[in-house]
Amino acid sequence: MPNDEVPDAAGQAEQESAELDAAQAALNRMRQAAQSRGERRVRSASVHRQQKKAARSANQRSTSGSARDPQGLGGILNRMVAERGWTSPVAVGSVIAQWDTLVGAEIAAHCQPESFDGSVLQVRCDSTTWATQLRLLSTTLLTRFESDLGPGVVTKIQVLAPTAPNWRKGGRTVNGRGPRDTYG
């Protein structure tokens, strides 16, 4: 068998690389000719498709696309609260729910929010000492509420006195007689 009929593997690899180099050289000549004519190079179709696909997926992440696409529960609730104008009632609820983190553990151990009247927060303390302390801290707490919850949610803190024991037992009472022998 003659030697020129069956090329070895090394010869075949040399021939393929020469063909690839020839193709690259021809491509480079074409690019130079186009550039000399003033034509500009455009993206290849595959790069163009990839960029369009990336833009489409980024767009779908920002907007859900269709109303039937699944959405996160948090996004649905935020949209529903905003559409119905419930932002301040939700913020009021968050004051009561997050009271411990908003005011700190020490204040929360002795003072608890009772109710809201408009934007006035009513807080009941367990002693007159803590009621006085909370009155002194009210401006600091209001600025913290404004920064954490937003402006206008809580505009005033009304401190309520601690509750005294009720000595009335039953439906009928006599005025002016006092607790009588309850102190032993």
Rank of each mutant, 00 (worst) to 15 (best):
S64V: 13
G72T: 14
N59D: 11
I96E: 00
W130T: 02
A82Y: 08
L73E: 14
A67M: 10
V81Q: 02
S115D: 12
Q71M: 07
F116G: 01
C125A: 15
W99M: 03
Q60N: 11
L102H: 01
P70R: 12
A91D: 05
P113L: 06
G93C: 09
A108P: 03
Q98S: 15
W130H: 09
A108S: 15
V92Q: 11
W86P: 01
G118M: 03
E114N: 09
D100N: 11
V103W: 01
S94F: 01
I76R: 09
D117C: 05
R79V: 02
V81G: 00
G93P: 03
R79K: 14
Q71E: 13
R124C: 02
V95K: 04
L102M: 07
K53S: 14
A54S: 11
S115T: 09
N59G: 11
Q122D: 13
D117A: 12
Q112A: 15
C125M: 05
C125H: 03
A54Q: 12
R56G: 07
L121Y: 02
L134H: 05
K53C: 05
V103N: 02
A55H: 08
V92A: 13
S88G: 06
S88V: 14
Q98Y: 06
V92L: 12
Q112C: 08
Q122R: 14
S115M: 08
G65S: 14
L73T: 10
E106Y: 00
F116D: 00
T101P: 00
E114F: 01
L102R: 03
S127C: 08
W86F: 14
C111W: 01
G72E: 12
E83H: 06
S64L: 11
Q133N: 09
P89A: 06
I76Q: 11
R135V: 00
S115N: 12
G65K: 13
T128P: 14
V123A: 07
A82S: 14
A131C: 05
R79I: 00
D69K: 15
V90Y: 04
G74P: 01
G85T: 06
T128A: 15
F116P: 00
C125N: 01
C111E: 04
A131K: 03
S88W: 04
D126G: 08
R124V: 04
L102N: 03
A55Y: 05
L102A: 04
E114R: 12
E114S: 08
T101Y: 04
A109H: 11
G65M: 12
E106V: 05
W130Q: 04
D100L: 09
P113K: 11
W86V: 01
G118K: 08
H110N: 09
G85I: 06
N59F: 13
W130G: 02
V81R: 01
S119P: 01
A58K: 12
Q122A: 13
T132A: 14
L77D: 02
R84M: 06
Q71C: 12
E83C: 05
A54Y: 04
T63K: 12
G118F: 06
S66W: 05
A91N: 09
L121F: 03
G74M: 07
G104A: 05
S64N: 13
E83N: 10
S94T: 05
C125G: 02
N59H: 11
Q133C: 03
D117M: 03
L77A: 15
I107P: 03
L134C: 07
G75Q: 12
